[in-house]
């Protein structure tokens, strides 16, 4: 059985990781490589680095940073944020990224998935879907951080992304993101019925129980989290031990 994956997500702004606090044994929590190595040592299965730079200069710094991450980390890592062309994907692949995550750009131009997957393989392409459940009950994919609903319905869009060559779906419920109230597990389970590629659950984890729930009842293959790790509430290692006690197959 392939183990359920735990994936810390690190936000990078102008070349520095943001949000991390409370790591007494790290000299520089703003250093993306050191923080990543810390997570890798504590049992992270993969890492996601999300570039939230607002400037072109920040983006260039990020590419340099990806090279340093690739040099220093011996587990797979995904990079995302601002990838809107095959050239962007090529630049990050050359820098050493194992996977790229695309979101708004794939909604605006779905054939971007085809072109990146055809060139570098499905394993390289994660399609991130930020979906919001509307008043009529329909889950709609959104862009621009959840602020703009698109014409894509969650399930249809996930199926389309798979057909176009996505290797994984990273699904965030914008109704739950940041609330720390848990994941919409029924929706995750329903999504799992519709596609055969792995699903990464993101947004909403407030406790170990929430993560256990989405990996079992929600049938997600991996859970991505940021704040519960960054603020030192629980280490990746302790989380995995807890999940193991709950009979969830994790690597630890």
């Amino acid at each position: 059985m392939v183990a359920k994956r735990i994936i810390p997500c690190l936000d990078v702004k102008e070349g520095r990781t943001v949000k991390g606090v409370n790591f007494v044994d790290l000299r520089d929590v703003g250093d993306a490589v050191q923080l990543g190595q810390y997570y890798a040592r504590s049992g992270a299965d993969e890492l996601v680095y999300l570039d939230i730079s607002a400037t072109r200069e920040g983006r260039n710094t990020f590419t340099k940073l990806v090279e340093r991450i690739a040099d220093g980390i011996n587990i797979p890592f995904t990079v995302g944020g601002g990838i809107s062309s095959l050239d962007d994907a090529s630049r990050l692949l050359d820098a050493g990224a194992d996977k790229i995550s695309i979101n708004s750009a794939a909604i605006a131009n779905p054939s971007l998935i085809d072109s990146i997957a055809a060139r570098y393989g499905s394993q390289f392409v994660v399609v991130a879907i930020d979906a919001r459940q509307m008043d009529d009950g329909v889950w709609r994919a959104t862009t621009h951080g959840g602020s703009r609903p698109s014409d894509k319905e969650l399930f249809a869009w996930a199926r389309e992304a798979e057909q176009r060559g996505a290797g994984e779906i990273l699904f965030t419920s914008m109704n739950h993101d940041g609330t720390r109230s848990g994941y919409p597990c029924e929706t995750f389970a329903a999504l799992s019925e519709q596609i055969t590629i792995p699903i990464i659950a993101s947004g909403g984890a407030g406790s170990v129980a929430d993560i256990a729930d989405v990996l079992t009842r929600g049938r997600a293959d991996a859970a991505l989290a940021a704040s519960i790790f960054h603020f030192g509430e629980i280490t990746v290692g302790d989380l995995k031990q807890e999940l193991k006690r709950l009979n969830i197959d994790v690597r630890c």
Binding site: R5, G167, I197, P198, D221
Partner: peptide, 12 residues
Amino acid sequence: TPELKVPHMGWN
């Protein structure tokens, strides 16, 4: 199958 994701991706 619904129980078997492809690609086989992750730690085994």
